[in-house]
């Protein structure tokens, strides 16, 4: 979560709870709601690395809150992140390992493995369709995230089909 938080702080200084709210608002239910404790831990690490700095702000009849802002070094780290290409999709995933290794040991049949995996993916797809319906049409980041997940799933399913054809 380091760089997401850094990006939000590069936009404007904020305290932990505001960052949590901003993430929820931007990504909606299409992204796991960040845990506030996790956010504070991450902010602490970012501060230790000199990428953000926290300033105590006094509040009347409440404990002080810490507002964080992005430092010059933080800005540099953010630029580096944005400029670097992102990893491609995982293909040597756990299922692939099962598919290759399990039949060698005689503990599973490849056809059965593929069939089970297909049903599982379709179950996820059903959830995504529902999620897309429940998500505000105007929340573009959330809709695009869901659509991306759907396209990845479709590719995974097409690949399962290829694996199954290979068994012929």
């Amino acid at each position: 979560m380091r760089l997401q938080l850094l990006a939000l702080l590069a936009k404007e200084p904020a305290h932990g709870y505001e960052l949590k709210q901003a993430l929820e608002q931007i990504f909606g239910s299409a992204y796991p709601s960040p845990n506030i404790g996790q956010i504070y831990v991450t902010l602490g690490r970012l501060e230790k690395d000199g990428l953000v700095r926290g300033v105590d702000v006094e509040q009347s009849n409440r404990p002080n809150k810490k507002v964080y802002y992005c430092t010059a070094a933080g800005r540099e780290a953010l630029d580096e992140w944005v400029d670097a290409p992102s990893e491609g999709p995982r293909v040597r995933d756990e299922f692939f390992m099962k598919l290759v290794l399990a039949p060698m040991t005689g503990i599973a049949d490849r056809m059965a493995l593929i069939n089970r995996q297909r049903r599982h993916y379709l179950g996820i797809m059903r959830d995504l369709v529902e999620l897309a319906e429940q998500t505000d049409r105007d929340n573009r980041p959330a809709q695009l995230l869901i659509e991306g997940a759907m396209l990845h799933l479709q590719a995974d399913l097409d690949w399962l089909e290829r694996c199954q054809e290979d068994l012929l």
Partner: peptide, 10 residues
Amino acid sequence: GPGDVVELHG
């Protein structure tokens, strides 16, 4: 929670 579904493939 729905978010985790997306994260699996996000």
